[in-house]
Design a protein around this nucleic acid. Structure first.
Lengths: 233, 233
DNA sequence: CCCAATATTGAGATCAATGTCAATATTGGG
DNA sequence: CCCAATATTGACATTGATCTCAATATTGGG
């Protein structure tokens, strides 16, 4: 009733609170990336250097933490990347987003490793989540006749599956030169783009995605609301 | 010293022993398919209707069980399918094996669901295991000029990733009519096969794989040594 | 600086799962 | 049918993880 605007603060120790939550999330991402879904809360609090009980100030239980990790990592991509691709041609959009996703894997391997370990991702959020735009771009490309697709689900399986597998490879072996370009070429061709055009477009998209910068370094942050994955105001 | 031939028997209760091991493996597959990697041994022995201690007559620990499950399920495919595809044209071989893999998912959804939950699969056995033949066929297809591939790893990522994702879809939503054919068309085109040829070959391969029979029913067993996934002498 | 609001701490209660083992039941060769 | 070899049982010791809570430390507005 009384409070004027909706300030980001409200409680007393909100600053420390945010920091601690961030430390827990970061620690969780690292631990999950290392030991997989069978991680223990003890591991996380140890890595975050907080006491056992502190955990429960932030997450009601283990599952809540997992959900938060998934949300945090996925939105770090969705916010930073997919939104800021402003390109009219849906085919080019498709290529750009795909290339961005692959470079995201190279830039944030720990986060990706964590995601790949999490069943929750596979279950829910792959098609609808950050790569959800892909479905729209795919449909748009089909509408303009640039893509040749009969079964949209099948095409999406190929695209998303290939992306996930490629990201896995990028993350476990380090990234191999122009692996991204190779994957992209195959994907474009699977959608009916001619060989020469696919090669050219893949090269362009990978270069363009690289200049946009895959949230590479620690504190880029420009203007908007592009939250880093880490946290940390 | 004395024993003549190497009979399959050796110990007294070998028959019951095999049965019990089979029950445990089957139960494990089902439980893992349902609850994922965080399953408990208690769940498994309960489902298998054996006592707690019996488990440790067959597997030294939880990890040994997981390894056994992966081995059992993967070899049930490798033995039954990939081996018996006797086709000279590598491109057709590729199409046949791919189609078989997709129909395997429709025929053995519980086993596949279990595999998809298991990190061990992702880690080790996808490229080298049952789909390992794919790499050879892919290379052969490139050698004959039928496939057009610059980066073999990239091509494999697309193929294997698409297969995994398609199998997941087949298993979670039921199988959708000719989803297999759609995926296969896209895969062939991603490898440089022309649209018309890809469509024709995909249709043929799916039909052929269907007649070979995806180990569909419970006790088909013809001749060879095609072991069912289940177990059970 | 003071102190109330808030966050952190870590000891421990509770719970569940793993793995062991001596006792018991079953198997099948003679 | 008998009995030694073998498999099964289930109670239990052990371990380790989750979550609680009363006590303590920290924060920042006035």
């Amino acid at each position: 009733m009384s409070g004027a605007v909706d300030e980001p603060t409200r409680t007393r120790g909100f600053k420390k609170k945010a920091r601690t939550r961030g430390r827990l999330l970061d620690a969780a991402v690292e631990v999950i990336a290392e030991v997989g879904e069978s991680f223990s809360i003890s591991d996380v609090v140890a890595r975050a250097e907080v006491a056992n009980g502190t955990f429960y100030n932030y997450f009601v239980d283990r599952d809540a933490l997992i959900d938060a990790v998934v949300l945090e990592v996925l939105s770090s991509f969705a916010d930073d990347k997919a939104q800021e691709v402003v390109e009219d041609d849906p085919v080019l959009r498709f290529a750009l987003i795909t290339a961005s996703a692959l470079q995201w894997a190279a830039a944030a391997p720990v986060e990706i490793r964590a995601l790949l370990h999490l069943d929750a991702v596979q279950r829910a959020t792959l098609e609808e989540g950050p790569l959800g735009h892909l479905r729209a771009d795919l449909a748009a490309g089909v509408a303009t006749g640039r893509f040749e697709v009969t079964d949209e689900d099948a095409a999406l399986d190929v695209v998303v599956g290939a992306l996930v597998m490629a990201m896995r490879r990028i993350v476990v072996r380090g990234r191999h030169g122009d692996h991204e370009r190779g994957v992209l070429v195959h994907l474009l061709r699977s959608l009916g783009v001619a060989a020469a055009e696919a090669r050219a477009m893949a090269g362009d998209a990978v270069d363009a995605a690289r200049t946009v910068g895959p949230a590479g370094s620690v504190d880029g942050d420009s203007g908007a609301g592009g939250r880093k994955v880490g946290h940390n105001r």
